[in-house]
Simulated scan of single mutants.
Amino acid sequence: MYDVAVIGGGPAGLSAAIQTRARGKSVLVVSGDDRDNPLYKTQRIDNYLGFYDVTGKELLERFRTHAAQMGVERKEGRVLNIMAMNGTFYLSIGSDMEQARAVVLATGVVRSAKYAGEEEHLGAGVSYCATCDGMLYRGKEVAVVGLAADAPQEANWLKEIGCKVTYISPNEPDALRPDIPAVKAGKVEVLGGQKVEGLRAGSTTIPCEGVFILRASMAPADLLPGLELDGNYIKVDRNMATSIPGVFAAGDCTGLPLQVSKAVGEGQVAGHRAAEYIDHNPIA
């Protein structure tokens, strides 16, 4: 079990992680592919103190090196849900499970709007994890809605285990197997009654039994039911504490301005307060 789990490997998450380590706590950072991080794509940054004319990729690499040097552990993956029970948070990361005594949410801005038919068919053909549920669809038609940088690799894996895969994305997929048909569409609708029967992608209807919707990360309210929001952002106090004891948030997910310096500062507070929370709530 870790003392603190940080969801997100951007400036806020890594700042929280090093503050937690500075106070002698164990910490795990869970993050997805760097290519999904807006900072990674930024070509030039001039307004972060001490780092004039630096690319976002360079800055992110420096942050990550710093965290690694302080003993921060990192796990690449997508957190699907978080369950709190008896003072412990259980994090479902793909097909794996990790435990922590406190959590810092640093997910960035995540669009929470779901596709038509998505919520109604969750668990009845709609999945957010190919490695978790892919074996259930061997020999069957499935659709992969690729919204994350690593989605083509997951589609390739589904094909390799025997699924009949169609890939749907608003952008041209990178490294998708040539024998997987791809449909370019930004708007999709999950079709079916009691279970998934197909997917409408733009003007194309794809018959299928399973739909894998692969976003870069889950919306905070989907990760933690009961988490209080302020509009589309996580509601926090000056200690970066959320409405759920033991859960803190920092960075773009807490609101404007969406700036690196704000994210780093909020991460510092969140990591500090998460460490304090553990000190004041010892394991029984």
Rank of each mutant, 00 (worst) to 15 (best):
S217C: 04
R138W: 01
I244N: 04
K184S: 11
G226T: 10
R21M: 02
C208F: 01
K140W: 06
S203N: 15
G71E: 03
N232S: 14
V109N: 02
N86A: 14
L147Y: 10
V30G: 03
V211E: 02
L229C: 06
A284K: 15
I18H: 02
A84F: 06
A68I: 11
G198S: 10
R111F: 14
H272K: 12
N171C: 04
A68H: 02
R101K: 15
E160N: 12
T204M: 12
E119R: 12
A149V: 08
A219M: 03
V126D: 09
G94E: 05
Q153W: 12
G202W: 09
S112F: 08
T131C: 02
G117S: 14
F63I: 00
S92M: 08
A149F: 08
K57A: 12
P207H: 03
A106E: 10
V196T: 07
D3C: 04
N232Q: 14
A116K: 14
V6G: 00
R111A: 13
R138D: 10
A263V: 13
R23G: 00
R78Y: 01
A124Q: 12
Y90G: 00
A250F: 11
E141P: 10
G9R: 02
S169L: 09
V54S: 09
L122H: 08
T204C: 03
E172G: 01
Q194K: 15
D150C: 05
R138I: 13
I7E: 08
D222E: 15
A106D: 07
E73M: 04
G139S: 03
T107A: 09
E197C: 03
G255D: 12
R44V: 15
F63N: 00
S203M: 11
L59A: 03
R177E: 12
C163D: 08
M70W: 04
V190T: 12
V165N: 08
L136W: 14
R273G: 00
L105S: 13
Y2F: 15
A130R: 01
W157H: 13
E189K: 15
G9Y: 04
S31M: 06
A106I: 12
Q194G: 14
Y167N: 03
E228P: 04
N232I: 13
A113S: 14
C132N: 04
L214P: 00
P38Q: 10
R273L: 05
G246C: 11
M1N: 02
L14C: 03
A106C: 11
D252V: 08
E189G: 12
C132I: 09
G134A: 11
E119M: 11
A68V: 10
K187V: 15
L227D: 04
D179F: 05
L224K: 02
Y40T: 13
L136F: 15
T166D: 05
K159A: 15
G267E: 06
Y90R: 11
P225N: 06
S31Q: 10
I93V: 15
G186L: 13
K262P: 09
E58S: 07
M85Q: 15
G117P: 05
G134E: 04
